[in-house]
Amino acid sequence: MKKLINDPADVVKEALRGMEAAHPGHLRVDHDHAIIYRKDAPRQGKVALISGGGSGHEPLHGGFVGTGMLDAACAGEVFTSPVPDQMMEATKQVDGGAGVLHIVKNYTGDVMNFEMAAEMAAADSGIEVQSVVTDDDVAVQDSLYTAGRRGVGITVLLEKIVGAAAEEGRPLQEIADLATRINSQGRSMGMALTSCTVPSAGKATFDLADNEMEVGIGIHGEPGRKRLPLASAKDVASLLVDPVVADLPYGKGDSVIAFVNGMGGTPLIELYVMYNEVAQILEQAGITVARSLVGNYITSLDMAGCSVTLLKVDDELVGLWDAPVNTPGLRWGC
């Protein structure tokens, strides 16, 4: 293992210290609970947004705390859900009287821990909490016989758009409905060129030969659905975009936000090569790209690879997407 770390056990703690030191004007960090807050939380009368999950997906979620996105993010250990105490504490701290939305990615641990937090919050404080669970990964069969689809790329787009709506002062129910609608209109698919190495494990989670790629991966180094011979960017783009387009389905005349996301270990130049291919496939399908996002936003430590997310949008969603956002991970219009 080659990593820029000190003790593997201190990675999350020290990264949070670094985030606080790097963004003193925007963030404050509760180090006892591993919670990142926007500096001006709670905002009276604004619905507060909380997300959280295992660490190792940076900038998600802590990097999306700030004006126009999240009010707080709860950091778990690497690839491990945060615990209910954290979400309870964050819920109490950010509530500005308008209620709190929990944004949860669909993983067994995350869902169970957020559920326990919501149960405890209801019993404890009386703060109104709603939850949205993202599950946009088409690589996973959605049936009664699996834990359901994983929450991946759509989570980034959802946090941005719903964050803008909350900033406008919309009520909790409307915010929760909007979040559900965004999740239902988004689909993603990812692939890996390499595995990733969890600091505490010290070795790669799975092995991939130089001439292989793993298609249908999630964001925790869990192996994907199938292993294929390495292919060109053009072919990989089809492998990712085709099942995404077919699943919703997206069709001629649809308008989308197209998001090409890096898994953490792939250079931006390759992500743009991929975006070029993705854009051509969408153009041929008659799908209009209203907005795009290219970069490392929901990552899997040092994994090389990418994912493609499409979100079907209308003027309202595009307007909210364009609204000002000021976070360490996303910033425009301000």
Partner: peptide, 12 residues
């Protein structure tokens, strides 16, 4: 355990 384990094992 709920407060320290995390993941699915913590709640379970």
């Amino acid at each position: 355990l709920v407060s320290t384990v995390g993941g699915a094992s913590g709640p379970l």
